[in-house]
Design a protein around this nucleic acid. Structure first.
Length: 354
DNA sequence: AAGACGTGGTT
DNA sequence: TAACCAAGTCT
């Protein structure tokens, strides 16, 4: 059904929407897909530079499928949610092997690819091929929650179902590409989380929350919970060449598959680091030299990272393999590193401490 | 169903 | 400053 909502929105979009984001140029399914994955829970301004660099290095789905995983993660370093990068490459391999290098055209086939859910599949269909499909991202949730005064936190199934139903209803039969971009642009530029610009909203007429003067009540807030705190040790083990020991983290969990400093059982106290180092790595370490800690906040818990610097007498006991390497700082920066570790290894002030 | 999963910006 | 949140998906 093509209702007044869609018509007014599209009219507004033609004049005020965003028409030249990087993924709007040379538009194809691959570029749309990569942009949609990068944009999951990530702001447009953050994505732009990553997208350009990623496309330069991996111009086609084949380039991505054939690349070393560390290269892919390296281009994701600092973006967060690294499962996205691992899934991206898995999906690229599937597309090459099962679909002859072409993205499947049906929504359920797209959703079968790792990292592509209901909304991302719809975004690809609409953005890449201009076919009718319904998205529901954070922007659309906010717009529709206000327009229809849908109460409740969108994380709850009932609220989410109500939003999906409305989203489907509003999706027009034509101009699918422009419509999906338009409703996201409205959320990003007008119907913003704080200080929405209702005076310039093309659909304020039919907006229930606006009519009731309750725009600020929607969407419902997430129930707040206390974040647990976690403290860990990150060892900076340096050999006499000035190289640092890095380890690949397990494929799942925080920073999965990325390279990082060796993590030590947090149960060890500050004065047990030398012993722990010898036990865990079989290394003959000098007196641990604490260089102070920095605190890093995650979305789900506070993680206190305490870097401890130790000089290693004989690095040959820990070899170079797929999961453990002695690397100079500059070399390490080519790998997929978590942002805090990258900062630790790259900023002049931090590096001076190493 | 609810929690895990990152980081940087905003309030 | 600490909470909140952004073009969600997976388990």
């Amino acid at each position: 059904m093509s209702d007044q909502f869609a018509d007014r929105l599209l009219q507004w979009y033609d004049r005020h929407g965003r028409h030249d984001l990087p993924w709007h140029l040379d538009r194809n399914a691959y570029r749309v897909w990569v942009s949609e994955i990068m944009l999951q829970q990530t702001q447009v301004t953050t994505v732009i530079l990553y997208f350009r660099a990623f496309m330069e290095r991996f111009p086609t789905v084949r380039d991505l499928a054939e690349a070393p995983v560390d290269d892919v993660l390296g281009h994701w370093s600092g973006l967060g949610y690294y499962a996205r990068a691992r899934n991206l490459q898995k999906a690229a391999i599937h597309v090459m092997e099962d679909h002859d290098g072409d993205f499947p055209r049906e929504q359920d086939q797209l959703e079968a690819l790792p990292g592509i859910g209901r909304s991302t599949a719809a975004a690809i269909i609409a953005q890449a091929w201009d076919r009718r499909a319904t998205i529901l991202d954070g922007n659309v949730k906010r717009v529709l929650a206000r327009y229809h005064a849908i109460s409740g936190w969108p994380g709850q199934t009932a609220t989410l179902n109500a939003l999906w139903r409305r989203a489907e209803e509003h999706t027009p039969a034509t101009r699918a590409r422009d419509y999906t971009q338009a409703i996201m642009d409205l959320g990003a530029l007008v119907c913003t989380r704080s200080r929405p610009d209702c005076e310039h909203c093309p659909v304020s007429d039919g907006c229930t929350a606006y009519a009731n003067g309750e725009v600020h009540l929607y969407p419902g807030r997430k129930p707040k919970k206390k974040k647990p705190e976690k403290t860990t040790w990150m060892l900076i083990l340096e050999d006499h060449h000035g190289r640092i020991l890095l380890e690949r983290r397990p494929p799942s969990g925080i920073w999965g598959g990325l390279w990082s400093l060796p993590e030590l059982d947090p149960a060890f106290g500050p004065d047990e680091l030398q012993e722990a180092c010898e036990r865990q790595f079989g290394l003959d370490c000098s007196e641990p030299d604490l260089i102070g800690g920095f605190r890093h906040t995650f979305s789900h818990y506070h993680l206190h990272i305490q870097p401890a610097r130790l000089q290693v007498a004989d690095a040959s006991k820990v070899g170079d393999d797929a999961d453990q390497r002695w690397l100079h700082r500059e070399t390490a920066l080519d790998l997929g590193l978590p942002a805090p570790i990258r900062t630790l290894l790259s900023t002049p002030e931090q590096a001076a401490l190493l």
